[in-house]
Design a binder for these strands. Structure first.
Lengths: 155, 155
DNA sequence: ACTGAAACCGGTACACC
DNA sequence: GGTGTACCGGTTTCAGT
């Protein structure tokens, strides 16, 4: 168990969250080490849950056409248990790639990816609208993706 | 150059965007193939840009405390060149992990990650507020992260 | 486009400092 | 917590179909 991360651990994380295929030897050279300590640190970072997993980032524009929509949802009455029911349901929808409980003008912010406007209409009608205690729903359609980082901004 | 993806390519993408460390042999078994065609297909998917890269997903809660804030920004006058200036500047800010041009009540939606409320105040004051042509700025602070998928929802 | 086997190279284990 | 070496397993290559 790592109590806290030192500068070397952070440097390794920063490299791996940019390119998980970076070979240990190259990381080692970059940090003036040999590959064994780099390897051991990575294993610790994995085992202690600092690294959740490794994923391929796919180019969604190339793979298939889609639109991204943000939905802002307010509940009629935000009672604790109702919120949990709501969230559990929303969590199941594959179209919802992000879901946050927020403070402000509305209660939930959803990022939804669907094939086209028609699919979004369908999603809103058959999934969102049927959720319990829905108040207002507003949508913002993405016209252009300027930035979409996966990496957490480590200093 | 791949004209379009077949069912096998899509199956491979789906596996790799969940776990990039899945070994070729296991993918092959899953698809009733041997590892060579799986390997060759992955290479094609990489070379033709269907797979952008591979990244480590880090557990940001464990690595360092932070808050996530959504900022909704309206410009005073959305002239084309001004928008580009704005976007180029926003793109530089490491705190901004996502930035979209949207249609609706406001022009831009930003997802911002900072250490704490103080850092957000600072970010808003020294970075957002100094951008050209800013109209209204609204913020929604994330109280709870319910879902945060990286994988594109392939059917 | 896939099979099967051989070669290669990076990840993994270990003995030592 | 680090180095250097040796081993092992997955990737990569290739001849054959």
């Amino acid at each position: 168990m790592i109590t806290d991360l030192d500068a070397i651990d952070r440097a390794i994380l920063k490299i791996l969250e940019k390119d998980a295929k970076t070979i240990a030897k190259s990381i080692a050279e970059h940090l003036n080490l040999t590959k064994t300590p780099v390897y051991e640190r990575i294993k610790r970072l994995e085992q202690d849950g600092y690294i959740k997993n490794y994923v391929a980032v796919i180019n969604k524009e190339k793979v298939e056409s889609s639109i991204t929509v943000f939905s802002f949802i307010s509940l009629e009455a935000q009672k604790g248990p109702m919120m949990d029911d709501f969230l559990e349901l929303v969590n199941q929808f594959p179209e919802v790639v992000e879901c946050f409980v927020v403070g402000g003008e509305f209660d939930f912010l959803l990022k939804v990816i669907v094939k086209n406007l028609d699919a979004y209409y369908n999603f809103a009608k058959t999934k969102i609208a049927t959720l319990p205690n829905i108040g207002a729903v507003k949508s913002a359609f993405v016209l252009k993706e300027v930035k979409d980082e996966i990496a957490f901004p480590l200093l």
